[in-house]
């Protein structure tokens, strides 16, 4: 992974030297050329194409912004309704993620999305306790978190 990025930056520098033009725009063009070269040559070099991960990160960000806007519409609906017709509660969400920073990322994303707020972790870090503003069905809420964010994070770190 790191080796590939270094290779890519080196290609960008060579491109700048060839064009004899040392600006940021030229560097960006060289970087894209390097990406294309790596993409074409990925079969002969013995490693995985690293840009796949970048695309996965990009997908995660898009999913996150979409969920963030949905979350805010949700909260606004609750705030503006004349009667507070909500059923809040704390649910335990088990997670398959292994390393510490993956769990941290998941809890941060949970905090910023539809009616959920991560509150505490269990001792072994395998369970996140989530306060949800409206949980008519507990299992459905857990399933939604698993299907959206956990899947996207696994896609990035796989």
């Amino acid at each position: 992974m790191a080796f590939q990025i270094l290779l890519n930056i080196a290609i960008a520098f060579i491109w700048m030297l060839l064009k004899n033009n040392f600006t940021g725009v030229e560097f960006a063009i060289g970087y894209i050329v390097g990406l294309l070269l790596l993409f074409v040559l990925r079969r002969f070099l013995n490693f995985d194409f690293y840009f796949r991960r970048v695309i996965a990160v990009f997908k995660l960000i898009v999913l996150f912004i979409y969920k963030l806007i949905l979350a805010n519409i949700d909260v606004i609906k609750i705030v503006l309704s004349p009667k507070l017709n909500i059923k809040p509660g704390i649910i335990a969400v088990p997670t398959k993620l292994k390393t510490e920073w993956e769990v941290t990322l998941l809890s941060c994303l949970i905090s910023l999305t539809p009616g959920t707020l991560s509150m505490n972790f269990s001792e072994d870090g395998k369970t996140i306790y989530v306060h949800a503003i409206h949980v008519p069905d507990k299992n459905e809420a857990i399933k939604e978190i698993h299907n959206s964010f956990e899947k996207a994070i696994l896609e990035v770190t796989k």
Binding site: K87, P88, G89, I90, I91, A92, N120, Y129
Partner: peptide
Amino acid sequence: QSIQDDLGKA
């Protein structure tokens, strides 16, 4: 009016 509290149980 909260309906469940898993953290308290744990």
